[in-house]
Design a protein around this nucleic acid. Structure first.
Length: 290
DNA sequence: CTCCAGGCTGAGC
DNA sequence: GCTCAGCATGGA
């Protein structure tokens, strides 16, 4: 793989020589909820206490309102740009026409390495919910209870800390309109704030150990646990998300075995759009390759 | 009005 | 073990 080049121009950081990366594929496939699309195909985003505006022209990625050091230490890892996706895609596509199609829908998709605490709350909110409303709830949560940061002329709010959420009165969270998920959020925040659960320790633990810890949290089932693990990118190994797909299929397809063919049929019928195919690709990435 | 959306919990078998 | 109603909310 060609080495990426970092340079500066007009106060922006440029990363050139990118391969197998597309901002739109990566941000619209359903793995994240906090990137805002702006004019001129620019994307405003935040992770932790770092904000940035991204735009892309072919193999050049432009970072505004940040530093070369942050690009190296924060954004390249967050965007998973150091990984060679060409070999991954080649392996996935081999002898698998449906995977070839899935990849062709989102060839520039990358698996983001997102904040584990943020992912836990995000996927708790996602249950039995729609994507626009998930986005809205998370946005309100951050605007009301997160610390503001500036990014150029924009203001972006950090994801609220566990301590902040744990310290709220129950009715304070009503503004988010999270419904019955409110108590899940508060319970999880209390667990983390009191040190009974430490999302930042997960990277030092075994995957199954983390998964068991997650499943012990109220409101966390297999899907929430899997999505939390998957979209933090913590475990680059065999990932059990197929168990979730299998469970869904068991309900919808009266079968108990999750054959590859059934999985493909599920994806075909369940998802007819780019996001769906990109997601199937994501799941395969996590399950079979990373 | 009903049904559904990137599920999970708790109760009843 | 398994099934299934109920769950807050808002949009179709």
């Amino acid at each position: 793989m060609k080495l990426k080049q970092i340079s500066e121009k007009d106060g922006c950081i440029l990363l050139s020589g990118l391969q197998d990366f597309d901002l739109i594929h990566t941000f619209t496939c359903g793995q994240c909820f906090r990137w805002q699309q702006r004019a001129d195909n620019r994307w405003l985003g935040i992770t932790g206490e770092h904000t940035v505006i991204l735009s892309q022209t072919d193999d050049v990625l432009v970072f505004e309102h940040t530093t070369a050091q942050a690009v190296e230490s924060i954004w390249i890892p967050y965007l998973d740009l150091a990984r060679n996706y060409a070999v991954i895609k080649e392996r996935l596509a081999q002898d698998d026409p449906i995977m070839q199609r899935a990849i062709s829908y989102g060839p520039g998709l990358r698996l983001l390495n997102q904040d584990p605490w943020e992912m836990l709350i995000t996927w708790l909110i996602s249950q039995n919910n729609g994507i626009p409303r998930i986005t809205s709830i998370i946005d309100t949560l951050c605007r009301c209870f997160g610390e503001p940061l500036t990014c150029g002329s924009d203001v972006v709010y950090q994801f609220p800390t566990p301590e902040r959420l744990a310290g709220l009165d129950s009715c304070d969270l009503d503004i988010c309109r999270a419904g019955y998920r409110k108590e899940y959020i508060q319970n999880a925040a209390a667990l983390v704030a009191e040190g009974n659960v430490d999302p930042y320790a997960w990277r030092h633990m075994q995957k199954e150990e983390v998964r068991a810890e997650l499943l012990g949290i109220k409101g966390v089932g297999e899907k929430v646990a899997d999505c939390t693990l998957l979209f933090t990118g913590l475990f680059k190994e065999v990932f059990p998300v197929d168990r979730w797909v299998k469970r869904v299929m068991a309900t919808w397809y009266m079968g108990t075995e999750a054959s590859t063919e059934a999985l493909h049929r599920y994806a075909e019928e369940r998802f007819g759009d780019l996001a769906g195919y990109a997601q199937e690709y994501l799941f395969y990435l996590a399950r079979d390759v990373l």
